[in-house]
Each structure stands twice: as C-alpha cells, then as structure tokens.
Simulated assay, not measured.
Amino acid sequence: MTPAIRLLKKQKIPHTVHEYKHDTSVSSYGEEAAQKMGVQAGRVFKTLVVQSDKMLAVGIVPVSSKLSLKNMAKALGVKKVAMADPKDVENATGYILGGVSPLGQKKRLKTVIDESAFEYDSVFVSAGRRGLEVELSASDLKKLLQAVYAEIAGL
C-alpha cells in the first residue's frame, strides 16, 4: 500500500484504485494510464513539481496538456517557476518520477489544481507508483491537499 492510498483510507475519502501493467518502454506515463484504463485523457491528471526561488510546489494538470509555467507562477504569487530537478522532486515527495502522487508526499508542498478537474465527477491521479492510479472527486483532492485551483494547463 502506498502512502497516497494509506492517506485516503485514513481520511475515509471515497476512492477507487486502478492498477494496470506499466510498459517500461513508455515515457508518457499519464497518457499510458489513460489509454490502459480506457479513460478520457482530460480526466487523468499528472503531478508536476516546480521550483521558484522560494519553494517547491505542485501543479496538477491533465495528461493531455502541458503545465503553463507562467500561469503556475501567477497562481503561486511568484515571478517565475521552472520544472524542479528530478532529485529534488524525489527527495521532497518520496516518490519516483512517473509515479509521483500529489497525495501522501513526505513534505506537504503548496499545490495548484487545474480548474478543468472540476468539470468531472471524478479524476484520476497517481497513487504513488507507475501502473497505479487512484480515482476520486476533485473537491476531495482539493480539500486533502489544501490546494487552490487555477487555469494552469497550457497547450
């Protein structure tokens, strides 16, 4: 059981765990998840960690989109952000790249969820390892993470 799933159970948050066989030759983990689960890519969200001069933060965007660094910086109230160094991501979250869950991270990072998540009854995020996703409501995700939402997805 991953820290993400443990957190959901402890907080008694309704969720469904989805597991699929991860193909190690695939580099687009989120799109692989959507395809293997037969779910619209707009409902599957990836967890991206960014770095500003002050902090690490998490952006949660659909796998069918890219993260707008400009919009992410605006949502965080900083001048600019860049993608965080992979080692910093793994150290702060406790997860390996491709399996970074926004839930159950070692350090609680400020989190911004793309507003498109609220268009769906439920969304999918990594459950903490490649080939494992968790489905839950965007409002529960927001509440658990004490997140804000903003338009942070770009094309």
Rank of each mutant, 00 (worst) to 15 (best):
A75L: 07
V17G: 15
G77L: 04
A147I: 12
A92I: 02
E31Y: 11
A4I: 00
L145T: 04
E31L: 10
G99M: 04
V61Q: 12
T16N: 01
A73K: 12
D140G: 07
A34Y: 07
Q51R: 11
D53A: 14
E31D: 03
E32G: 08
Y95M: 10
V17W: 08
K10W: 00
G42R: 06
M72A: 12
Q146W: 12
V112A: 14
V112G: 15
K70W: 09
V125Q: 03
A127F: 06
R130I: 03
Y149W: 12
Q105S: 02
V61F: 13
G98P: 02
A147L: 06
K142V: 06
V134N: 01
G94N: 01
S64V: 10
G104S: 15
K106H: 12
N91E: 07
S65K: 15
E151H: 05
S52M: 08
H18C: 03
K87W: 08
I13D: 09
H15I: 00
D114T: 04
I13V: 05
K143C: 04
V125K: 06
T111Y: 09
D114H: 04
L69S: 09
T47E: 07
G99L: 11
L141C: 06
K79Q: 09
S64K: 08
L69V: 06
L103N: 01
V123Y: 14
V49F: 08
K110G: 13
G94F: 09
M72P: 08
Y20N: 07
V148L: 09
G94Q: 02
S65M: 02
L145E: 11
I96H: 13
G104K: 13
V63W: 04
K10N: 09
Y149E: 08
D85A: 06
I113N: 10
R6W: 08
Y95H: 02
Q105N: 01
K142R: 13
K10R: 14
L103P: 01
K21S: 13
V134E: 00
A117F: 11
A84G: 14
A57T: 10
I113H: 05
K21L: 13
A73M: 07
Q35W: 03
G59N: 02
L97E: 07
V134P: 00
G99D: 10
S68R: 15
G59K: 04
H15V: 00
N71H: 07
L67F: 15
L155I: 12
H18I: 00
R108S: 12
Y20W: 11
K70Q: 09
D140L: 02
T24E: 11
E135M: 08
Q40C: 10
V78A: 05
I13L: 07
A82H: 10
A82I: 07
F45S: 14
H22Y: 10
V63D: 09
E32R: 12
S122M: 13
S28N: 07
M1Y: 11
L67G: 04
